[in-house]
Nucleic acid binder design. Structure first.
Lengths: 240, 240
DNA sequence: GAGTGGTCTAGACCACGGT
DNA sequence: CCGTGGTCTAGACCACTCC
């Protein structure tokens, strides 16, 4: 894997920023200087800078230059290093932590009007309906309620659900997860939460609702992840 | 304000997508066709497409084309139309809703070690410490706990806090809010929440922790927004 | 092999910030 | 006014998808 020009510029600049090499001036060198230093085009330099801005490390001001955003040990945890969220990411990917998964129900259903309203799947199509409890260090911290379009993700079974559905989708079915859209809410705990989660005194849950799309633009999944308070953090970056 | 080339392409394509003009093929025209249609360069066309991808409307696949993501009335609420979050945005901007703000405390403090650890402000600098309750339709839905660096945002007072601090910062102090970084959590309710929020039966709150930077890269604000369950939604888009 | 988006270059002009 | 990033063009080659 040859490193692309802009990637090499990006990683070099990122390393320097994190090492504090530019922090006195609170500025990046101007584009022309970076072009000269890396012997690259303006396109490559600007693409690298855009990526640094996506990371929340710099901010470009027309007429002034590329400004470094202050960062301290305390503000590190606001950065999006781990993708977009710190806690729950592992659940939908391959990452292994110290956790266990219990499949509490696995059924195949046909989407009716109610389920269609909730999941946005068409009425009449078959889906896998799965409930799984995620235990972190023995504590029941998350319940995942999944609906997978069975036409787009055939062959899921309870054994796969216990291990990793995403591993199966990506490695066996060769499905590419293109985009995931999410809504985050805080909900009052319901029956399913009280039954399956170690809420302690708390009577609310976080609710991360995700819909996922493959690279043909089709939505193949609707998932609600209910999680206990005080354990998970989500990061966000807003630019003007 | 003259519309830029890429903006005109972007809005035209966005309108067409939302009107369903491309939905049969589930594809955008190829770049060369868009270049011909809009008599623009590849740069402008690609920048417009990137913006559509930022909106979660399309996804580009090398060798295949630009794919439309399925969207239904149900999935509209997953889109980031309102910036990045549906509910609380109004609080930190100028938007007027049917809400009232009560300033429950307004003090000037010097940052000590504890506050520095929390807010990332340097020990010894003066800050405005503000607590405000936001009432929506008479319901105490949010408590904002702000700390503003008084050196960077001088002149804030209780009257400004009651109206709009951001309006004051932007219009009077001419401060540009460049970047806001956020963490979202679900916390067990504490004293301050029980005291000031209409939690009903719930004993948890959502906690949106924000740090904001001006266009010189300086962090001028640390804010915790505690909000009641079941009322607010945050949207997120993750791309691979 | 043909078609398509991704990367890259060289160059021009514009808009904004600061002196 | 000068310096800077933002927009825009024209063109080339590469990497991937699909037939």
């Amino acid at each position: 894997m040859v490193e692309k020009t802009f990637e090499s510029i990006y990683t070099t600049l990122k390393d320097r920023i994190l090492a504090g090499k530019y922090s006195i001036k609170m500025r990046l060198p101007i584009e022309d200087d970076l072009i000269a230093e890396f012997e690259a085009s303006r396109y490559a330099v600007r693409k690298a800078i855009r990526q640094l801005a996506d990371d929340g490390l710099v901010y470009s001001v027309k007429g002034r230059g590329v400004v470094l955003l202050e960062h301290t040990p305390q503000t590190q945890k606001f950065n999006l290093n781990l993708g977009q969220l710190a806690g729950i990411k592992a659940l939908n990917t391959d990452k292994t932590l110290d956790y266990r998964t219990d499949v509490v129900s696995f059924t195949q259903e046909i989407v009716d009007a109610d389920l269609s309203t909730k999941t946005a799947f068409e009425i009449g199509i078959p889906v896998y309906a799965i409930k799984r409890v995620r235990l972190f260090n023995g504590k029941r911290a998350v319940i995942d309620i999944n609906y997978f379009n069975a036409q787009l993700t055939p062959g899921i079974n309870a054994e796969i659900a216990r291990k990793s559905i995403y591993h199966y989708l990506q490695h066996d079915l060769k499905i590419k997860i293109a985009v995931v859209k999410r809504m985050l809410r805080v909900d009052s705990a319901e029956m399913v939460d009280l039954k399956y989660l170690d809420l302690g005194q708390n009577n609310c849950v976080g609710n991360m609702i995700s819909i996922a799309f493959n690279d043909t633009g089709r939505q193949f999944e609707y998932t609600e992840s209910h999680f206990i308070p005080n354990e998970f953090v989500f990061n966000q970056l807003i630019r003007n």
